[in-house]
């Protein structure tokens, strides 16, 4: 049984529609590519539960989450921005992944320390987000994702605002965390080549429809679909 099963998802906003269906194995890393307005972020919002489906179902690890509240889903997200509460310290920001009211026990404190260590930010506990660089902020958010111990991580272009070198460093970190924490990842990317470094498979969205799904290297190096060829700029 696949780890994630999205069956006949259908979402509508005014006259725009999103339709998709696919499944994913545990430990897989899937890249979502496509032009802007294709519905990449909406797809993640649906899985996270920020938006409601018209029809279709979402099953994760054999359980149905179609109508579950975002907080009740075994999902953790990393957004492009506003991942941290600007007025709370690094430790509190990470701690909110353990308890929404920051009632933390010994185990939680340990988990926070380990997560911060995993993203290379030990000793940053009492810093405020404003004193961190863009890359460090996203690492703190990543630490909170780890703390939540949810198996499915959704990345909505969290590194888009970073410099190329930093982006590559963060990809390396994600790649390593996927292995060490047994994560399943769905990531939206505007840079298919970069996504291919960590994603084994990919899907291509166009105007709200899933047009292609396959192994990432096949999609990029040998695109059959004219729409995908046009998107990638392959003649």
């Amino acid at each position: 049984m696949p780890f994630i099963e999205l069956e006949a998802l259908c979402y509508q906003r005014e006259d725009w529609q999103l339709k998709a269906a696919f499944s994913l194995e545990r430990g897989e890393c899937l890249a979502v590519i496509g032009p802007s307005g294709a519905g990449k972020s909406t797809l993640l919002s649906l899985i996270a539960g920020f938006e409601r489906l018209i029809s279709g179902s979402i099953r994760i690890n054999g359980r149905d989450y179609t109508t579950a509240e975002p907080a009740d889903r075994p999902v953790t997200s990393l957004f492009q921005e506003h991942n941290l509460f600007a007025h709370l310290s690094v430790k509190k920001n990470v701690g909110l992944g353990r308890h929404p009211g920051l009632r933390l026990n010994q185990k939680d404190h340990l988990a926070i320390d380990q997560a911060l260590e995993a993203v290379g930010l030990s000793g940053y506990h009492h810093r405020l987000p404003e004193s961190l660089s863009g890359g460090e902020r996203q690492r703190v958010a990543l630490a909170r994702c780890l703390c939540r111990e949810h198996p499915l991580m959704l990345l909505d272009e969290p590194f888009a605002a970073l410099d190329p070198a930093l982006r590559s460093e963060m990809r390396g970190l994600i790649h390593q965390l996927i292995k060490s924490h047994d994560l399943t990842v769905i990531m939206v990317s505007h840079h298919p080549d970069e996504a291919a470094e960590i994603a084994s498979s990919g899907i291509f969205l166009h105007q709200g429809e899933l047009k292609a799904k396959g192994v990432m290297s096949d999609l990029l190096n040998n695109p059959q679909l004219p729409l995908l060829r046009a998107y990638l700029g392959v003649s």
Partner: peptide
């Protein structure tokens, strides 16, 4: 989005956020 994913609501949301 962050609050609803982390389940921060009600009193917790008022006090912390």
């Amino acid at each position: 989005h962050l609050c609803s994913e982390l389940g921060i609501r009600g009193w917790h949301q008022f006090k912390l956020i």
